[in-house]
């Protein structure tokens, strides 16, 4: 399910050239949203490999490299949807934060909900941030650009 995406060549090519592509795990059950995310990443200048799993239990399998995920890379960042069948986003978040190996991976909750309860719960489970999925395409591109800019260019990620 690994979809290498790399597009755009604006401005900071020199910076990116020094860094390997980022591995991003997208946990999302809606095929439309998965496709949209791919398109959005295509639209913006984010150099990353996007891995997609469609539910919470698969996300945990992916992170623990179980069965068919035996040879997947450890993600630099997780984009997590909350509302999913079986294990939902909270379960995944809880599993990540309870694991010694995984707890340092930044988790960005990406949900269509703007409910206070969801926002509060996500932060209580130590999500790194909570983003409500933008409605329009251009807003979505903006958001993904700022995610890339902040997490890949501005901050230092935990070393492996």
């Amino acid at each position: 399910m690994s979809v290498p995406t790399s597009r755009g060549n604006f401005g900071n090519a020199s910076v990116r050239a020094l860094q390997p592509s980022r591995e991003i795990l997208l946990v999302e059950d809606s095929p439309a949203d998965v496709r949209l995310m791919k398109e959005v990443i295509r639209e913006c200048d984010l150099d990353c490999n996007l891995h997609v799993v469609e539910d919470g239990s698969k996300a945990i399998d992916f992170l623990q490299r179980i069965d068919r995920f035996e040879s997947v890379p450890r993600p630099d960042m997780i984009l997590l949807d909350l509302n999913m069948p079986k294990e939902d986003g909270y379960d995944v978040l809880d599993a990540i934060r309870s694991s010694r190996d995984l707890s340092s991976i930044p988790v960005i909750v990406l949900s269509s909900s703007s409910s206070k309860i969801d926002i509060r719960s996500a932060y209580q489970l130590n999500a790194n941030c909570y983003i409500t999925k933008p409605a329009g395409l251009s807003d979505f591109v903006k958001v993904m650009n700022s995610i890339g800019d902040f997490w890949f260019n501005t901050v230092k990620l935990p070393p492996l």
């Binding site: 809606s30 439309a32 949203d33 949209l36 269509s112 909900s113 409910s115 999925k133 409605a135 395409l137």
Partner: peptide
């Protein structure tokens, strides 16, 4: 907020 807006967002985005 969630369930009603979700499909709407998909329509809008695509």
């Amino acid at each position: 907020s969630h369930d009603l807006k979700e499909p709407l967002r998909t329509i809008r985005s695509f």
